[in-house]
Simulated assay, not measured.
Amino acid sequence: MGVFVRLAAALCLPLLLAGCLLTPGKFTSRLLINADRSFTYSYVGEVHALDPEQMKPGKEPVSADDKRKAEVKARAIADALSKEAGYRSVRYLGDGAFAIDYQVSGTLTHNFIYPFNLDGQAIVPFVAVELRGNGTVRVKAPGFANESKDELGPMSGAADSSDKLDGTFVLETDAELVSTNNEEGPGTAGPRKTLTWKVSPLTRDAPTAVLRLH
């Protein structure tokens, strides 16, 4: 029965998330990348699920019945996510907001994106790690800035959520740091380097760094 429940949740999750735009609220996020390609990513804080259809200009006000349906859907999303790998806890806070505790570890043999929703109408990854052919990886956090949301246009609903952006993104590594847009540069402790970005509604440029791995 337990296997069936987990399978059902996995099958239903794309349908529940379809059309949702996930955006960060108040959070702490950390990405550890080692030169041997091992990595750990964590996100602890708020996530807001927005319906782009409701953000369109001229859209009729949401009815009480629609609000009730949205609340049921949100609670179902929280339940389904809590059964997914990496989600240590998911709690629905109301009004489309979730409290998320997520952590995953692995090896960078392929690109990594969080979160990823194949069926969503609009996807703005919080963090993306792109492997390149010359032994480098590019780390970019488009969800932790407003530049990528501007590219989606006013119909995405992202502009209306930017006032909720309030967090810290930390990148720690012992790999060679090729480049970064972090103005303060890395803090160092032995061979390890730490880059810290404080993000807010005023953050325009997505945190970005390029690392060279073994």
Rank of each mutant, 00 (worst) to 15 (best):
N111L: 03
P154Y: 09
E147F: 01
S162K: 09
H110D: 15
Q103R: 12
L118R: 11
T136R: 00
G157P: 10
A128M: 07
R132K: 15
V104Q: 15
S162E: 15
D166L: 01
A141Q: 00
A159I: 11
Y102W: 02
F116D: 10
F144Q: 04
N134A: 06
S156D: 05
S162V: 07
T109P: 05
E151I: 09
F126T: 00
A159C: 12
D166G: 14
E147A: 10
D163T: 06
Q103I: 01
A141E: 08
N134T: 07
G135D: 06
F144M: 12
D160Q: 09
Y102F: 15
T109Y: 08
I100N: 00
F144N: 02
Y102N: 04
V129D: 07
R132Y: 13
P142T: 03
V129R: 00
D150S: 10
Q121F: 14
A141P: 07
G120A: 15
L131G: 09
V137P: 13
Y114A: 08
G153Q: 02
P115L: 05
D160N: 08
L118N: 14
I100L: 00
V104Y: 15
G120K: 06
S161L: 07
F126Q: 01
D163C: 01
I113M: 08
D163A: 08
K149T: 06
L165I: 06
I113P: 10
N111A: 12
A122T: 15
P154A: 14
M155I: 02
G120F: 05
H110M: 10
A159P: 12
P115T: 00
K149L: 08
G143A: 04
G143S: 04
T107H: 15
L108Y: 13
A141K: 00
I100D: 02
